[in-house]
Amino acid sequence: MRHWFRSYWAEEDTWFYFEVDADGWVTRQVELQGPLQRPVVAASSAEWEAARRAGTLADYEAAFGATAESPVHEWDAHDPQDLPAAEFETVWRAARATCRARARARSAHEG
Results as ranks from 00 to 15, higher is better:
Met1Arg: 13
Met1Val: 09
Arg2Ala: 08
His3Phe: 04
Phe5His: 15
Phe5Lys: 14
Arg6Asp: 09
Arg6Asn: 10
Arg6Leu: 04
Ser7Glu: 04
Ser7Gly: 02
Ser7Gln: 03
Tyr8Gly: 02
Ala10Lys: 14
Ala10Asp: 05
Glu11Leu: 07
Glu11Trp: 12
Glu11Gly: 12
Glu12Val: 07
Asp13Gly: 07
Asp13Ala: 06
Trp15Lys: 10
Trp15Tyr: 09
Phe16Gln: 06
Phe16Pro: 01
Phe16Ala: 04
Phe18Asn: 15
Glu19Met: 05
Gly24Tyr: 03
Gly24Asp: 02
Gly24Asn: 03
Gly24Thr: 04
Val26Ala: 08
Val26Gly: 09
Val26Asn: 03
Thr27Arg: 15
Arg28Thr: 07
Gln29Trp: 11
Glu31Leu: 02
Gly34Arg: 06
Gly34Thr: 01
Leu36Gly: 06
Leu36Pro: 03
Gln37Leu: 10
Gln37Phe: 04
Arg38Tyr: 06
Val40Ala: 01
Ala42Lys: 11
Ala43Val: 02
Ser44Arg: 02
Ser45Leu: 09
Glu49Arg: 15
Glu49Leu: 10
Glu49Gly: 12
Ala50Val: 11
Ala50Glu: 11
Arg53Asn: 12
Ala54Glu: 12
Gly55Leu: 08
Leu57Val: 11
Ala58His: 12
Ala58Glu: 12
Ala58Gln: 07
Tyr60Phe: 03
Tyr60Gln: 05
Glu61Lys: 03
Ala63Lys: 10
Ala63Glu: 00
Ala63Trp: 01
Ala63Leu: 06
Phe64Glu: 01
Ala66Leu: 05
Glu69Phe: 14
Ser70Val: 13
Val72Thr: 08
His73Gln: 11
Trp75Asn: 01
Ala77Leu: 09
Asp79Thr: 10
Asp79Tyr: 00
Gln81Leu: 13
Asp82His: 04
Leu83Glu: 08
Leu83Cys: 14
Ala86His: 13
Phe88Pro: 00
Val91Trp: 05
Trp92Met: 01
Arg93Asn: 06
Ala95Asp: 00
Ala97Lys: 08
Cys99Ile: 04
Arg102Gln: 08
Arg106Asp: 07
Arg106His: 05
Ser107Ile: 02
Ser107Trp: 06
Ala108Pro: 00
Glu110Asn: 04
Glu110Arg: 12
